[in-house]
Amino acid sequence: MTQRALRIWATQSFAAFGVFALLAQSYQAVWDRSPFPGHAGLVAVVMAAGSIAFGLLRARPASAVTRSFDHPRCRIAIVPGDLFEQQDAHLVIGFTDVFDTDPADSRIVNEGSVQAQFLSREYDGDLNRLDADLRTALAGEPTRSTVLRADKAHGKLDRYPLGTVAVLGMPRRHFFCVAYSTMSGGLVARSSADVLWHSLSRLWDAVEEHGGRQPLAMPVTGAALARVDALDQQSIVRLILLSFVAASRERLRTSQLRIVLRPEDFARIDRLELRAFLDSL
């Protein structure tokens, strides 16, 4: 149990015990007799047990972390699940600045990454079709440099500015492919909190322009292979939340932001802390 959960448990348990005691005293004051004559010890034990159970119930982490906002009218949800099963929402897919796509042997793109799953589940493993769609989406975007083949033996060579968003798919379900990390010549992706914040800001702009205010689902970008080492997964979730709420204060970007975590990751995060953070925004 986390420190916040312990505080909630203790506070709620004492509050419940106080209510029980007040009711018992009120009964005795009105009727001038004990509610359970001769069983004061048993009543106290039952009251204590009930209070503890109530506190535990109140301190139990929720099955999802949610909050609805009135201005602008939108909803944020942090849920366990499968990103690609969010059929009612546009999806966010993280890429590097060269938009590499090949997961063969995990040399360039890790086979277990969201990006590799995107290729497999949304493009049926058709690498050529995905690359063609990316070329079309990026046709109007300027490159910032081109890597020499001698410096990068595998993969693509054109570098795009960090924060570039390639919008794939159809209007009913777009895929926002955002470049939030730099791919080195040694095929190692790296990012930072500053780069992630900038990339998220560009992402919200693209979502506003192309998303039609439909729900948006995304993973915890930068939590693993992008090596944002200064932040743990929970800190990255907080950064995403803060970035989205800040951007939404200016203009409505989407009716719902849904951050989807793998069930095992969702079980590890401190949901009470995230709920408290979300309520503070």
Score class of each variant (00 low, 15 high):
Q3G: 12
R4T: 14
L6F: 10
R7G: 09
R7H: 13
R7D: 11
R7N: 12
W9M: 10
S13I: 08
F17W: 14
F20P: 05
L22N: 01
Q25P: 01
Y27R: 12
Y27N: 11
A29Y: 07
F36C: 15
G41V: 13
L42I: 15
V43S: 09
A44P: 06
G50C: 11
G50F: 05
A53W: 09
L56A: 06
L57W: 12
R60F: 13
F69C: 13
R73S: 14
I78A: 01
I78K: 03
P80I: 10
L83Q: 00
F84G: 00
Q86H: 03
L91N: 08
V92Q: 09
I93Q: 06
T96I: 03
D97M: 03
D97G: 03
D97F: 01
V98F: 06
D105A: 07
E111G: 02
G112F: 09
G112S: 13
S113R: 01
A116C: 06
F118Q: 04
L119E: 07
S120P: 01
R121F: 05
D124R: 15
D133M: 10
D133H: 13
S145R: 01
D151I: 01
K152N: 01
R159D: 06
P161G: 06
V167S: 03
L168W: 06
M170N: 00
R172Q: 15
M183L: 15
S184V: 03
D194K: 11
L196H: 07
H198F: 04
L200A: 04
W204N: 04
D205Q: 15
E208G: 10
H210V: 10
G211P: 10
R213V: 15
Q214E: 12
M218E: 04
P219V: 15
Q234C: 13
I240P: 01
L242Y: 08
F244E: 08
A246R: 11
A247N: 12
A247T: 09
S248L: 04
L252T: 13
I259M: 02
R262P: 02
D265T: 10
D265K: 08
F266M: 05
A267S: 00
L272D: 06
L272C: 06
L272A: 06
L272Y: 03
R275T: 15
L278F: 03
